[in-house]
């Protein structure tokens, strides 16, 4: 018996969130005695990179290397994962929440007759029944969810587990997938990605700006800070609504929900809808010239001051220290 983990990769590297899913599965397998962790990777990626997934706790990586799987075609990926799940006789599938992962997991839940829990924030309690804690109300609350099916799927939230990597190597095996034409009923014509190195939903540090920055031309200082910190940039809803920043940088209730270790908000007042997108952050820093800004109530550290004075100084201080 094994736990299967569906891992995603981008630019030749396994995503960090997928490594977290592997580490989560390993801790779960140790707890429930479900055997070893088998990761499944789809599409073109090097065997060396896949072997390194052993460092997060996978014993084996199944690699369905068919280049037709390079594009994230939802149905084709769901079919491939279902075949791997059945082939290793698993009862549990673990994956990291993502745009593709969520869509694939939902279809798999039906294919595998598996109860699916998303936004999982910690290891399930399995001593009596199967109780999974997940984040709900966009981070404003948690729910204990009882899974009653024999097969289970857990879509985990970022930072659900502390990721520690070692030098262990997993064995990598080619995995043959049988795909039909109907799996490719939709076609991905093009993919457009932001040029930035760090993707917002996966970033460990996020630097966000709001209307307090007064115009898109003033984002350079935030981009400087992001570069110094290796951070992704985000923004508030009004900023993306006016078109100062692209929609995929909008952090909040109806935008991207982030869970970085450090979130720095500059010139954002902290409307409840914005807080809903950031309340899973480990540490929040707020910089705002209005001492009454509601965001300060949700912050760990704050500076009351004008962003145009504070940020350049802060960038210098960060550069000196890092």
């Amino acid at each position: 018996m094994s736990i299967v983990v569906y891992i995603e990769h981008s630019k030749g590297k396994v995503k960090k969130t997928s490594l977290e899913a592997v580490a989560f599965a390993k801790a779960l397998a140790d707890q429930t005695g479900e055997g070893e962790v088998v990761a499944l990777a789809l599409g073109t990626i090097s065997s060396d990179e896949l072997a390194s997934v052993g460092g997060a706790g996978a014993a084996k990586v199944l690699h369905a290397s068919d280049p037709k799987l390079n594009d994230g075609v939802i149905q084709a990926h769901a079919t491939a994962v279902a075949q791997a799940f059945k082939s290793v006789v698993a009862k549990t599938l673990v994956l990291a929440k993502s745009s593709l992962g969520d869509a694939v997991a939902a279809r798999l839940s039906i294919k595998l007759q598996a109860g699916l829990v998303s936004n999982v924030v910690e290891l399930p309690k399995t001593d009596a029944g199967y109780s999974v804690k997940r984040s709900i109300y966009t981070g404003k609350a948690f729910a204990e969810t009882q899974v009653t099916t024999e097969n289970k799927i857990l879509a985990i939230k970022k930072n659900a587990i502390d990721l520690k990597l070692d030098d262990s190597k997993a064995t990598v095996e080619e995995f043959e997938v049988t795909l039909s034409e109907s799996d490719f009923a939709s076609k991905i014509i093009a993919t457009e990605r932001a040029t930035g190195e760090v993707l917002l939903p996966e970033a460990d540090i996020v630097v966000s700006g709001g209307r307090g920055l007064k115009g898109p031309e003033n984002w350079a200082m935030l981009e400087d800070m992001a570069k110094i910190l290796g951070a992704a940039t985000g923004c508030s809803k009004p900023v993306s609504d006016i078109g100062w920043r692209p929609h995929h940088e909008h952090v909040g209730q109806t935008g991207i929900k982030v869970a970085p270790t450090l979130y720095i908000a500059v010139g954002i007042s902290g409307a409840i809808q914005h807080l809903a997108g950031v309340n899973s952050s480990k540490c929040i820093v707020v910089i705002n010239k209005d001492p009454e800004a509601p965001f300060f109530k949700a912050a760990d550290y704050g500076i009351v001051g004008d962003a145009f004075e504070v940020i350049p100084k802060l960038n210098e201080a960060l550069k000196a220290e890092l």
Binding site: S98, A185, E192, R193, P201, H248
Partner: peptide, 14 residues
């Protein structure tokens, strides 16, 4: 168009 991490995919289907 479908949102993906940091961007979007353009898709066709029937």
């Amino acid at each position: 168009s479908r949102e993906i991490e940091g961007g979007k995919e353009i898709l066709e289907a029937t």
